[in-house]
Each structure stands twice: as C-alpha cells, then as structure tokens.
C-alpha cells in the first residue's frame, strides 16, 4: 500500500519514538520500563514520567496480549480515510503489563466488542515506512 492510497493520518516519527515504530515493522510491540522506579509507561517518552529519573527508560517487548478497557463504535468522523470506514471500533486496551493504549479492534464485528474481552496485537503495514499496531480478539 502506498502513501497515496492510505488516506488516514500517519504518525509523525521523532527520535524519541523511532524505536517503537521500527519495532512495529518487525512485528514487535514495545513499551517502556523505568530502570529506577520499575514502572511501565505508555505512550513512549524520552524520560520516565513517573519519577523523572536521570536515566531514560528501557524499551521492553510487551506480550501483545491484553483486554479491552473501554471502547466506542464510531459512526461519524469527517476526516478523510476514517469517514469511509465507519462504523469502526476505537478502543483503549489494557496490556498485560498494565498500561493502556489507544487502538482499533479489527477482525471482529463492532457489535461483538465487549469491555474485558481478551485481545492480541496485530500489525498492519500501511506504507513502506509505517506499520501500525492494532488489536483483534485473542485466539483461544
């Protein structure tokens, strides 16, 4: 898929977040763990927002499994790319490691999504430069 075909918004990738997006291309979901206070954080940052330690947090591979913390089925969004895809599921997924991330729930009818539903990460290459993590119902 080329940028021309992909009409939705693309992430802006900075030095602070590049390891995350590079890992997505390899099919890995990275989160961060502080070397001082030991807490996980998401979205990624170049420092630990929990304790403001001098050392930057470590990138660690998440299991990619989690549960739907909450969601909404979106029926109206006027932005190009999204307008064509309604209804779609916008969700907050709580990873096994505890942190929550925004995502879409794919490979599932919107009306079948429930809070607490087990989900797993799935990656979609949307351009040559960008691969985005989504979630789908966990395979038993």
């Amino acid at each position: 898929m080329t940028t021309q075909q992909y009409k939705k918004l693309l992430p802006a990738i900075s030095g602070e977040t590049r390891p995350y997006w590079e890992a997505c291309k390899r099919g890995e979901l990275l989160i961060q763990k502080c070397q001082k206070c030991g807490k996980y954080q998401f979205y990624p940052r170049g420092f630990c927002s929990h304790c403001w330690a001098n050392e930057p947090p470590q990138w660690v591979k998440a299991s990619g499994k989690g549960k739907v913390y909450t969601f909404t089925v979106t029926y109206q969004n006027r932005s190009p790319g999204y307008a064509e895809e309604v209804p779609y599921v916008l969700a907050l997924v709580e990873l096994e490691e505890g942190v929550r991330m925004f995502t879409n729930i794919l490979e599932c009818k919107p009306e079948d999504v429930r809070i607490g539903m087990p989900v797993e990460v799935v990656f979609r290459k949307v351009t040559d430069q960008v691969t985005i993590p989504y979630f789908r119902p966990a395979k038993a």
Binding site: L10, A12, E85
Partner: peptide, 20 residues
C-alpha cells in the same frame, strides 16, 4: 492534519473524535 510525535501519533491515527 499534521500530528505531533507524542501524543497525537499514538491516538489520532486510530480515528479519535471528541465525541468518541
């Protein structure tokens, strides 16, 4: 429609709206 690296790029790409 230009997103900031954080936090927009971890949220808006999924089609967030104010209502949502």
């Amino acid at each position: 429609a230009r997103l900031s690296p954080v936090p927009d790029s971890f949220e808006d790409i999924y089609g967030t709206t104010t209502v949502g």
